[in-house]
Design a protein around this nucleic acid. Structure first.
Lengths: 196, 196, 196, 196
DNA sequence: AATGAATGAGTGTTCATTCAT
DNA sequence: CATGAATGAACACTCATTCAT
């Protein structure tokens, strides 16, 4: 039944099935069949829409990245202070987790794989720089440029480090909240230390 | 050619071939053939010595863990100050990297896989707790217990975060040194902040 | 080339290739490749249709059993005497052989393997009991129940014994016919001896 | 420690380990390792003494055959009647079973394999003919030669058939005894029927 | 004489991809 | 558009054999 306009729907369904499968089984054990079965479609459709497994994986990572971006933009409405905006950045980075419990593991799988996949590595660098840029932009409004750069770098590492340790320890929601709090308090201490 | 006393040699050769293969190809693409070819041995020998691929992977992670431990013990000779010891902990965690350039990517592959492998997850938790414990032990000599616990948690996250970002960005030696410096300076700032 | 309705055809083709391969090479030397090559298909299709080699072997035994059953039902049309029916039972058991020359060896391979395979053992018992039941049913119409049971047991053993010795000696058609005659005459002598 | 005269001992130990392994695991799953482990020796010794797995298997079958022969000779002391001797033949054929419970399954494995192994097939034919000859020799003393041949053939088939059905049904000792009784009574009925 | 380390061809199975329908 | 049957290379693993000791 050839319906028009089904493409974006099908693509999104497949991306979400991929997220689920990678979270459940890991990237290694995720197959074109485990995905298509979860999506309730045939295996052939993956090649049809994404050119192959690789393409679907990359599209899924791009979707995760844009989710993170949207998550941040939703929060940073106009008129918030630089300090508020920094807190929102932290929240956005941890929120991706809480929206979809499973998604966290998925990130780690993708980043590990990015070491051996050029396109994924490119996406990972975009993501790492975006976090740094977002932090830098706000820190610059609060301190000297040199200090701001160091603050941004340290904050980015602290956010990633807390997040990594939480994921690897299969932390529950409370532990994720606690990690998020530590990150926020760390940023506030940086502002106090370096701030004008 | 049955020589006696070859077992430890062969095991070590296979572990090193595994490290190389995972660094080069990733854990996903590392096969029993890619390892045995690198080791200059037949594929059957892996099952003979490690019972299978899984056993070799786990032995390799255990070897990495003991390397890290040895790296720390070499540094923390008797009579060093708590502050010195903290610097050594940082150095040990970054040094594993520099001894064997390839090893870094390997860690990430293993930890990502640990989300879906019980034994690897156990080893990862041992590692995460060991870093925390080592840090806590030294911080406790410099500040109140409550503050020490927070400092240990934050330092552990900062070390892991800086390390993760360096690895993912395929950082060169200079960038790793810079990350190591940032970690050290962060710990010093914690001592100044929380110290008695 | 996904044609619909191919499944039963493919399954039958694979079962027949299995019969051929086991007859030629034995169950031990029959591999997924020897079967798929004979069937003119790829090796992957066996897992696709039967879940694995084990599944195909079991399906093949079930097919042999149903062939035997069908062979008997074809003969025992209504209105035949008990004595005629007993002759038909003998014929059916020897006929499976003659329809497909190779099939005989196959039976023996399967039964030998049934000692170490639960499902095959179950199928073997079904087969052994069926022969006994079929014989008993007819003997009961000709003699006292106690005598009928003994006659059925002896006849079953005689049929299997003659068949086994013929198979193991790689008997030709004439020798199989001779064995069949002996079996028939033995049953007739039982009727004379025990019959009312 | 090179002891002289160890060869026959080692050979016998390996043959007995083979019998055990085939009974336990089947011929298919019996490996050079499963045998040598059971015998408490190294795997290499099998090639050393028997030239390979194949050679050991054949030696094991030859040992079984000679056991059967010995079992018969032990019974048929001089001065027994032809009828007694026939009973002894039946007993010998069923006794191999009872001496070593496991041995029964082993026979079947070997005979099934004999369809695809020239040397084993030769041994099987020797065995089949020996049973026939032994029976014929005694029957000839009790009836006309033509009748004796038929009686021998039928008796051989009955013995093998009862034995086969007992083995395949994993019969217990009582069921084996019952099968043995049926065989004896059948032979007696043949003597009454055909005897002078 | 006896070992067992080492080999590597061969096994059953998985799975991304293709393509006729 | 969408399917899923079919492929076959690649995988981890097994195992009879070899041979230096």
């Amino acid at each position: 039944m050839p319906k028009v306009g089904m493409e974006p729907v099908r693509r999104q369904q497949l991306i979400e099935a991929t997220l689920q499968s990678v979270a459940e089984l890991g990237l290694q054990a995720t197959t074109i069949n485990s995905i298509s079965k979860k999506a309730g479609m045939s295996s052939g459709i993956i090649s049809h829409y994404f050119g192959g497994k690789q393409g679907l994986i990359e599209a899924t990572v791009r979707y995760l990245l844009s989710s993170l971006q949207r998550s941040l933009l939703q929060r940073t409405v106009q008129g918030c202070t630089p300090e508020q905006r920094l807190m929102f950045i932290v929240e956005a980075n941890f929120a991706v987790v809480q929206q979809q419990r499973d998604t966290t593991r998925t990130w780690l799988s993708f980043w590990a794989h990015s070491m051996h996949d050029a396109e994924l590595h490119r996406l990972q660098r975009v993501n790492a720089r975006r976090l740094y840029s977002n932090l830098l932009y706000s820190f610059k409004q609060l301190m000297a440029p040199g200090k701001a750069r160091e603050a941004a770098e340290l904050s980015a590492a602290m956010i990633d480090g807390l997040w990594l340790r939480a994921v690897l320890n299969k932390a529950d929601d409370a532990q994720f909240d606690s990690a998020q709090d530590l990150a926020k308090r760390y940023i506030q201490s940086l502002i106090q230390q370096f701030g004008v």
